[in-house]
Computed example of a mutant assay.
Amino acid sequence: MGLNMSVLASGSTGNAVYVETSRQRLLIDAGLSGKKIEALLQDVGRRPADLDGLLISHEHSDHIKGAGVLARKHRLPIYANEKTWQAMTDSIGPIPLDQKFTLEANECALFGDIDIETFSVSHDAADPMFFVFHHEGRKLALATDMGYVSEQIKSKVQNADALIFEANHDLNMLRMGRYPWNVKRRILGDRGHVSNEDAGKALADIIGERTQAVYLAHLSKDNNMKDLARMTVEQTLATRGFDAGSAPLLFDTDPDRPSTLTAV
């Protein structure tokens, strides 16, 4: 077994990603109910009882909703940075001390046979961070919940074999939509979310010879559509010189249905 992954759920209503090797089974974020995450894992043939750890990117509810329930029920270790622990403690409930671990942003850590790099992102949370997974020469990058894609982020996730990357909203849908202006301003700001067009521009700098798959993630329920996100990213890549033969495959993600468990 190499490095395998499934986007269990992705969107404004909840996020969770599963990553495994022969020695490690990790859940990244738990933004749905514990019961729903258990069902999603079962959909890809895995059991929550077999998980070795839960990594938390930040404290927003669409990333931690089921974290406490899963940890307590399955004796699951949780890894988060110190500021995120402080910000989410009231939301996830009591966690036994022997299940609480600190993993800071912009560090490297070894989880069994997976090397994990963490990196900071600009988002309106206490200390948000995301992850790059390395195993036997394969590289998987997870980057969502970003107001913009910094050069540091690009350098961390560049030339990954597979990317799970934010394409949160269509600019016109957001601007013309029902959200109040203060919410629109938050989403559009440097601590908000990346648009479809900006995702395409960033991916043009990130995609390398190794990159085979990009999963467009964290799509807004109200301000985006799968076909629109994919089309916008494809068109933006085309203007940067990527044609159908050179661009990686773009995959949709769903808020309540897992992607196929796939080798990176």
Rank of each mutant, 00 (worst) to 15 (best):
T84S: 04
D98N: 12
L163Q: 11
D115V: 03
I92A: 13
F131G: 03
I92M: 05
H193F: 07
L103F: 07
D127W: 06
A87R: 06
F133Y: 10
D98V: 08
F111T: 11
A199R: 14
G147Q: 03
D124F: 09
D124N: 09
K139N: 13
R185W: 00
L171G: 00
M176E: 14
A126N: 01
T102Y: 08
K73T: 11
G192E: 13
F165C: 02
N172I: 04
D190M: 11
L188W: 11
G137H: 02
D127P: 07
R186Q: 13
D113A: 07
R191M: 10
E82K: 10
H134R: 00
I78R: 07
Q152N: 13
L142T: 01
K83G: 12
I164P: 07
Q99D: 09
F131P: 11
A126M: 08
I187S: 06
M176G: 00
L142S: 00
H135P: 01
L142H: 08
P96L: 14
L76H: 11
M129A: 06
E166N: 05
L142Y: 09
D113M: 07
G192L: 10
E107M: 08
N81V: 05
A162R: 02
M176H: 07
F119R: 03
D170Y: 07
F130G: 11
H74C: 06
W85S: 07
K184H: 10
V69E: 15
K201E: 15
I92F: 13
L142M: 09
Q158C: 00
L97V: 06
E82A: 08
A105R: 06
L110W: 12
R178H: 14
S120D: 01
K154N: 09
R72Y: 15
E104V: 00
N81T: 13
N168T: 11
H193T: 01
R72K: 15
G147D: 06
A199S: 15
G68E: 14
F165R: 03
Q99A: 02
R185Q: 04
H135T: 02
A126F: 03
P180M: 09
D115L: 13
A105K: 02
D145C: 11
C108L: 10
I95A: 11
I116Y: 02
P128G: 03
A141H: 03
R186M: 11
I116M: 14
K139G: 13
N159Y: 00
S150K: 04
D127I: 14
D190C: 04
F165H: 08
I187Y: 13
S155R: 10
V149Y: 01
M173F: 05
G192M: 09
S150W: 06
L103E: 05
S150M: 11
D115E: 15
H135W: 07
N182F: 08
P180K: 05
K184N: 07
L70Y: 15
H169F: 15
L70P: 11
L163H: 07
F119V: 08
M88G: 07
N168D: 10
T89Q: 13
S91L: 08
F133K: 01
V194N: 06
T118P: 00
D170Q: 06
D124E: 02
E151D: 14
D115A: 14
R185E: 12
D127V: 10
A143T: 01
